[in-house]
Computed example of a mutant assay.
Amino acid sequence: MEQQVPGIRDESAARRESISLEEWQQGGKWFFYEGHAIFSRMGGQGEPLVLIHGFPTASWDWNRIWPMLVQNNKLLVADLLGFGFSDKPREHAYSIADQADLVEGLLEGLGLEAVHLLAHDYGCSVAQELLAREQEGVLPFQIASVCFLNGALFPEVHNPLMIQKLLRSPMGGLLSRALTRRSFERSFLKLFGSKNLPDQQDLDDFWHLLTYNNGRGILHHLIQFMEERRCHRHRWVSALQNARQPMRLISGTADPVSGAAMAQRYQELIPEADVVQLRNVGHYPHFESPWEVYGAYREFRKRHSDPEH
């Protein structure tokens, strides 16, 4: 079932109301996970909503939609291990399961009984693993709803960029350490639709987060999640197909990596699939078109909180 997006405000307003990277960092706190410092932010009142970011960026991706969501939700977000302002240990065995452990530990430590999930890209795989754990009865909290943004939910239709393929290759370590600002921008900009490209300040901030604390040196380790998606496909796709809670996919269809083909596959494989497609929007819909994403997400939550539905 494909939904229409409610009335949308001017996206330029979201850019003006966005949170600078410096403000984002200053408003955060750190906690420890297995001896590593993890950056996090919290804000707002209401039902807990956990935002899980993608690769190779960080929680700051949510900065444009944060002011909208924080009005009616208790927001929780963290830079996953190896990302953003969190520690980036060079020898760590990075995995989706490990990141799910991190999120699970954070939420259990806060004593939360139920949470909503809004996940993007890499974060979608983390959310799928959490769903699988809930269905196995081992999660210490309930997942009330899940909304996905442009993630490789089905690896068979994922179309990685050339730089992603090279990072996964035997030369990945060399490429990771040698990555230049110019080559990063050239590849990164391919992910965006025509609607709202990042400006120079945005690119400066994305690059800063990527390279912070020697982040370039571990990209080839982090990107092995693409193989994890293939190996755990049955577990993670089954988690979607067996989900009992409301789910929605909001898809930027101009995304060359996990856009229109991923949305089509979702409609084919997920019972009563709820999909919102955003035209001329690429891989980062919450950054490119935050008011559209907010409108679609707000309608999703309202629909499932209404006892008549």
Rank of each mutant, 00 (worst) to 15 (best):
D274K: 11
I270N: 09
L191W: 11
V50C: 00
A261C: 11
R64Q: 15
E2R: 14
H208W: 11
R301E: 05
D204L: 11
M226Q: 10
A243Y: 13
I52T: 05
H208I: 08
G137C: 12
P307Y: 12
Q71N: 03
H283S: 05
T57W: 03
E23N: 11
Y212L: 07
N213E: 08
L76I: 07
L175P: 08
F287R: 01
V276Q: 01
H304Q: 05
A58K: 02
C124M: 13
E23W: 04
V126M: 14
M262K: 05
S289V: 01
Q26C: 04
I52Y: 04
N150D: 07
Q128L: 15
L80C: 05
S305G: 15
G109F: 13
S59R: 00
N159Y: 06
A37Q: 14
L21M: 09
D98C: 06
A260Y: 04
T57D: 05
P290C: 04
L269F: 08
I52V: 06
N159D: 13
T253A: 14
R168C: 14
D61Y: 06
N159W: 07
N242T: 05
W66C: 02
K302N: 02
E108H: 05
A93E: 15
N159L: 13
G54T: 00
K195R: 12
Q200S: 08
L174E: 06
R303D: 04
A14C: 13
L117V: 11
L210M: 06
L269R: 14
N63K: 08
A239G: 05
E227W: 01
A13T: 09
E91S: 11
N150L: 04
A97G: 10
I52R: 00
Q264W: 10
K165E: 14
T253I: 15
Q245Y: 10
R16V: 09
D204I: 05
E22L: 09
W60A: 04
P307V: 15
R133D: 10
V70S: 12
K302H: 07
E108N: 08
P56F: 00
D10F: 06
I250W: 00
A178N: 07
E268T: 13
E113M: 11
P290R: 03
G173I: 04
S59T: 04
A37E: 15
R244S: 15
F154V: 04
R216I: 01
S145V: 07
H36S: 07
L197W: 06
F154L: 07
H232D: 05
S169N: 10
M68D: 15
G172Q: 00
Q25M: 02
R181C: 10
F141Y: 14
G172M: 00
R230Y: 08
L51Q: 15
E47L: 08
P56V: 08
N242Y: 02
R233G: 04
G54H: 01
W236S: 02
